[in-house]
Nucleic acid binder design. Structure first.
Lengths: 172, 172
DNA sequence: CCCGCTTCTGCGAAATCCGCAAGCCGAGAC
DNA sequence: GTCTCGGCTTGCGGATTTCGCAGAAGCGGG
């Protein structure tokens, strides 16, 4: 009775369109569909998800648990920083002399750095900073980031208006 | 019996440290605590949250529902883009002639633009792009973004390695 | 003081979550 | 072929959670 159209095609969650893939464990179409369901509503009941993706409640439960355990996905509350008291944000481009990764690790350790990525281009690193006010922002950029050994220079882009922020990977 | 240490201080979710605040509706300490609980685990039961913040199960439920309705927070699954098949990401700085906001709106409408923000500094806009492969990335940057009326120039920063990505606003 | 508004609480009823067992089925190994 | 293994399904109870609603409590305005 539960022979869903998706499940009938591929029953093994480990297979994928192609097996050579850069990242970690692979996802099949069903797990993708489950993730999409949980991206719409992280608290959706397992039974409802199962109905949508063509799986039983128990199977969905197992898959979700596995995805969580593997670290493929996490179910969390995300907020608008403005409404929780963080009024200044900025993207900071960083140029490094020496080991880029060690600088990245130092920035990662800072609570105000929400996002740290190594890049190709005229910056070696890009860092998103979330602060409470201008003083806080100034301190983080000029005192803390520039004090990290290996940081040659920085360029700041203060946020004026956040236009879009989605969490819809895989939903396209 | 349920006189929690946090709730006893302020019972009105609308008040805050200071009433003049840039953003939208204000949050009191209890709502903050609820958000923190849900940032650790978006599926945590209301009763467990209530015990942690000193509120009844029903009260937590009402608060969460209101936070969701107001758009202050959303409970969603977030994934590592790599594991869901998006292997190329980039930050793109954009310079605009004319109305910046209309360009921002055009970029916001593009599915590949995960993040769009207006900035002060040597770029007018910064956009995060999530793509499946190099061809896709190239097409988005050179064909689609540069085709938007008002875009004067762009500079791309291809992601080499994502070092940190948190959703812990308010948890510090 | 009383009223209106909002929030919190308490409590049943319904739904969900969770673990478990038995059987099915396809894929791969031997 | 046969075997094993992993995953899915079905079914089941019991514990837990969610949900809606009525009543009480706090708070500011008239």
């Amino acid at each position: 009775m539960h022979s869903g159209p998706v499940a009938s095609r591929s029953a093994d969650p480990r297979d994928s369109r192609e097996s050579k893939n850069g990242g970690g464990p692979q996802l099949d179409a069903v797990s993708l569909a489950i993730i999409e369901q949980l991206q719409e509503d992280g608290r959706r009941p397992y039974a409802a998800i199962g109905k949508a993706v063509g799986l039983s409640e128990a199977a969905v439960r197992q898959r979700v648990q596995k995805l969580l355990d593997q670290g493929v996905m996490q179910i969390v509350a995300v907020t608008d920083p403005l409404t929780v008291g963080f009024r200044r944000q900025a993207m900071v481009g960083v140029n490094v002399e020496g080991d880029v990764e060690s600088v990245a690790d130092a920035l990662t350790a800072m609570a105000e750095c929400e996002y740290v990525v190594m890049t190709a281009g005229s910056f070696d690193l890009m860092v998103e900073i979330v602060c409470e006010d201008d003083d806080h922002l100034l301190e983080v950029i000029n005192k803390r980031i520039r004090a990290v050994p290996g940081v040659r220079s920085t360029e700041s882009f203060v946020y004026l208006k956040l236009k879009k922020q989605t969490y819809m990977w895989g939903t396209r």
